[in-house]
Every structure is written in C-alpha cells, then in structure tokens.
Design a protein around this nucleic acid. Sequence first.
DNA 1: TTGTATGCGTTATCAA
DNA 2: TTGATAACGCATACAA
Lengths: 337, 337
Amino acid sequence: MATIQDVVKLSGVSVATVSRVLHDSPNVLPATREKVLAAIKELDYRPNRLAQQFRTQRTMNVLVLLPRLGDSFYSEILRGIEAVAAEAGYHIFVANTNNSVELETYFFESLIQKQIDGIINFSACLPKEYMEEIASQNPVVVACRYLSEARLPNVTIDNMAASKDMTEYMLNLGHRRVAYIGGNTALALYRSRLSGYYQALEEMNIPLDEELVRMADPDIQGGYDAATGLLRSGVEFSAIVTSGDTLAIGAIKALEDHHMTVPDDIAVCGFDDIEMSSLLRPTLTTVRQPRSLIGRRSMEKLLERISGQDSDSGEQIILDYEIVIRASSGKIRSEPG
Amino acid sequence: MATIQDVVKLSGVSVATVSRVLHDSPNVLPATREKVLAAIKELDYRPNRLAQQFRTQRTMNVLVLLPRLGDSFYSEILRGIEAVAAEAGYHIFVANTNNSVELETYFFESLIQKQIDGIINFSACLPKEYMEEIASQNPVVVACRYLSEARLPNVTIDNMAASKDMTEYMLNLGHRRVAYIGGNTALALYRSRLSGYYQALEEMNIPLDEELVRMADPDIQGGYDAATGLLRSGVEFSAIVTSGDTLAIGAIKALEDHHMTVPDDIAVCGFDDIEMSSLLRPTLTTVRQPRSLIGRRSMEKLLERISGQDSDSGEQIILDYEIVIRASSGKIRSEPG
DNA sequence: TTGTATGCGTTATCAA
DNA sequence: TTGATAACGCATACAA
C-alpha cells in the first residue's frame, strides 16, 4: 500500500499539501492540486484509515448492540438506522451481546477508546449507573430498554402502558383468569410489561393469582415450556398475555399439542408484532412497535450526541405503539371464563 | 484516559518495561512487575486499542458480511462463528451489505487497511475476480455463495445437487407440471439452485416450460408476487419448487388467497429450513443446511488464513444438506398432473 | 533485566 | 499558498 510519503515523493510537494488536497482544503493552487491528484491516482494511494482514526479520534463508524442477532424484530429497526446513518456518511456495524455483561463491556470499551463514534444499545445488560456514567461522556443511545428513570438518551415506547392496554383488551373480551408469560424481570423492559399486566388487573378489580404468572426465556421454546407448565399445574385460565411474540407463538404451539384450540379454548396475545406473527395461524394479536421510527430516531439522537449539539443527555423519546387485533385473541366471551 | 507515559512516570520504569508487563513478557523482575501493576491499577490505565492496532496491524476483530441482517437463516450460523471466535479470543462484528457493491467494497477496504483481521462473506456481490484477488492477499472466507469454480476459501453445500434432489422428490410424488420460483440468477447461488431444477427435469425427461420459471426478490413478498403471477398467467401446474423458504411461504400465502389448498391443490417446497418453516401451517418441506457447522467451519478456515498456515487459498468445504419432508409437499399423486 | 530511541501514517500547528 | 515539524500511543530493535 502506498503511503502519503510516496505521494510526496512523486508529486514533489509536502505532506501538508497532500493532506490539504485530500481534505479539499481551499488554500491549494489548482496546478498543485492537479499534480497531487495525478500522483495519488498513479500510486492508487488511499489514506490509511487506522492511522487517520488514530490521529483524529474519529471513525465515522457506529456500533449497534443487539441482545441477539437474527431476531427479526431488529431488522426493520436497522434499516431505519442505516438510512439515517448513510445520509450522514456513517457506516453501521452490528454486534451481538448475547446478554453477556462481558461482551457488552468489551464493546463499550471500543467506544471509550474511540474505535467507534457511538453506540446504539438495544442490549443494555450493564448496571444503569455505569451506563449513565459512560453515556455522560460518550455518544450513547439506549433503545427499547431501560426505564424512563435512567438519565441517558433513550428511545422507546411506553412498555408499561402498552402492556396494560393489551391486557385490558383481553379483560374486556370477558376473560377473568388471564395468565402471563413474561421475559426475565431482571430486565427493566420485562418488568415494565409485567407491571402493565398488574395494573390492568388492579384497575378492573381482578384478583392477582401469582400461579398464573410465569417467567421464561424470551423465545419460542421458552413460551412453549411456560405454557406447558401452566397446563400441567392445573391452574385455571382462559387467556394468556405475553411479553413477546415468540413467547406467544411457543405458547400456542404448546396449547395445540395439548389439543386445545386458540382462540376458542384459550385466547393468546403477543408483543412486538414480528414478521411471523401475521403469517402464522392463528394470526397473532399483539402490540406493534414503530420499528423503522425507533431506528431513525435513535440514529438521529446519536448523531446529535456525536456532534455535541445535545448537552441534555437525559432526553427520553417515547414513541407511539399500536394494538393490533388479529385472530389469536378471539371474540368477546358471552360469559366470563 | 491515562497513557503508557503516565504509568512510566508513576512507576518509575521505562515504556519498554511497562509494555513488557502488559504483554506478560518473562524477562521482568517480580518486584518491577509489581510496581508497574500497581501504577496501572492506580491510574486505571488501559492500553489504547487504536494505537495498538495502528502499531501492530492486528485487531482481533473479524467482520461477518451479511446480505440482509435479520434473516433468521444467519442467526444460527453466527452462533457457530461466535463460538469458534470466542475460543480464539476474537470478537465478531456484523455488517449489512444490502447486496450493495459499494457497501461491500467499503467493508473490504476495512480489511485491506487492517481495521479488521478477516472477513467471512455471506454477501459476495463483488466480481469473482476481484474477490479472488483480495482473498489471495487477505484472510477471506466466502460462505453460502459463489460457484465451486472460484479460487478462494469457500464453505457451502452443493446447492445444485440439493435443488436437484428436492425437485426430484417432487417429481417422484407424481407432479409433471412443476413451477419454479427462484432468486435473481445474477447471484451464482440462485443460478446453481435453478440448474438443479433444470437437471432434475432433464433426467426425468420432463419438458421444460419457461413460463413456469419465475424470478423474484428472495423474501415473502417476492414469493407472493411470483405465485400470483403464475396463477394469473393461467399456466397449468401442480407444484412449486422454490429457492428459498421465504419465497415458499409467500407463495403459499398467495395460493391460499386464491382459495387453493396446500398441498392438496398445489404442493410447495422451500430451501434453507428457517425457523418459521416448521411452525407455519402447512409445515414446509425444504432443504436443511447445516447452519451451525457452516459457521464453525467458516471461522476455523478464517483463523487458518489469519495465522497464515493455510497457503492453499482455493480450498472448498462442501457440507452435507438434508431434505426435510413435512406437510407442504403432500402425498404421492395417484395420477400425474 | 532494563532503558533508549525510532517509526507506524496521518493531521495540525506554526512559520515562512 | 506552502513546508517543516511535532504530536497521537504504542511496540520493538538494539544497546546497555
């Protein structure tokens, strides 16, 4: 690879001038510029990015941290992020944290060390205080995670309200024994959704039965296992609210395997509206998050943080959600079940 | 951030010694090591990665290039890659090319410039010759793409044979008018699968009707549109072979929307065996790729290339596939047609 | 066993 | 408008 020194030799000017040409500095004579450009072309010279980044502390790269790559929930979000990033000349890298604190720490170290210009974090397993500390000094946006109490840029829907709305919808269908299958409440995200369920019950004066509340890995298998557990425990219920579409899909499969019909025997609803949810039979009633917008807003916010315009690092961006009624929730029950 | 110079001042030794301690060099007196370690701890000193990388030309980072992030097909592959990478102390970054030559070029430039130590490329939109050129000088593994003629490390199944087997299976069920919905044949991957279809027809002496062959975007919508086109054209067929599960899923949806039953009216099969395929009704008959193994082997191969053991850059790794029979292909037809 | 000094390729400051 | 030169933080060859 040719270096700037090679260009210097061939063009007969100084490094400073080559650098000026490279960055379209105005104070270069056209003739000089031509000479330099010719040399660059002849040598097929391209500036060494690592050296540039080392020197300038800027990479024009942004990292998106996902808890689990391949969750289709994130693909549309990423498209939103990429659209905004491309416009601003940034490139997007994605990394998988597997909800591992170690991995997340590694990637945040990359940020602190300026190997990347910013992080949009959908993972957020690190302690809130630590995240706030880092976010106060580096461009960080947390999306779809954390409670509103966190003092850092945060793009999300109101998970509690959405879960409450969804639960209320089910209750209004006439269900009184409504089970809940949720993700690990160690994550604020799932805690919020569970609270929404609690609140809906409370407001409608329906007693809470802890037997009906199950925690599961937030995937199809997790939903399957949790629903199986509910059935085996013999506890009575006519509907299941979940904190994720994959959980709902797994639960439906378990119900079917136990010869029950959804929604006729048991009504089910999900959360997220992933692509699959409108394709499976029965189609899934769920909460739709504005995925493209989540992506766009997150990246816009990050760009503000990167360019330093935004000193208020505690801003929350709460986006609208939408309850999507499909087949899995069924119709109104004539008599409460 | 503290630098190595700060450690030098605090510990009273030279940079060289600090560096030795940092890299567990044996030739350091225990007492000296203690002093340095104490200083490092007190200053919370962490080596600047960018400077290290710039100096050593090594990053311990590997990039995985995907044509489209969020395709669940890749998630298990990535787990395989990550498992092998973690063992070797490497970290995985993922980037989306959207099948854009520009983006892919950008990321390969990152490789050439040593911003990353290697690339596993599932995208591969660049001209074969260009890729071969880069791969001959840099650690590159191409996976699930390209023909076997390419002279670079390549991990894949035999797409042609798999597609031929799958088509033969459908023909053996008694179908004679078998349509094909495939991805863009600009990609060798889809060319191979289409050839498999052709070969199966030829070997069984079934005349080829080009009206039955459709090209589509390799997603659900693409499959839906292509199947709709087939139905509207009025051409006769009793089965559809596809070059991807998403295409098959879209096709099934189109058939259902036209009041046809799968597999009773039309039999359908996919390719890849993505997660959804065993969950949708009807469950999908398809070709299963050994995804975890594809990931592991790709990363192993890349590590060999990185450590330079492997001078033979043309090695092909062809893995086994498996035909998975489920509901969408239906049973044997008593009378052909 | 330890220290000195050089260079990696670039940008940026200052002087001319 | 241009050039000389000093950083950036680290690793390492060589000397001591």
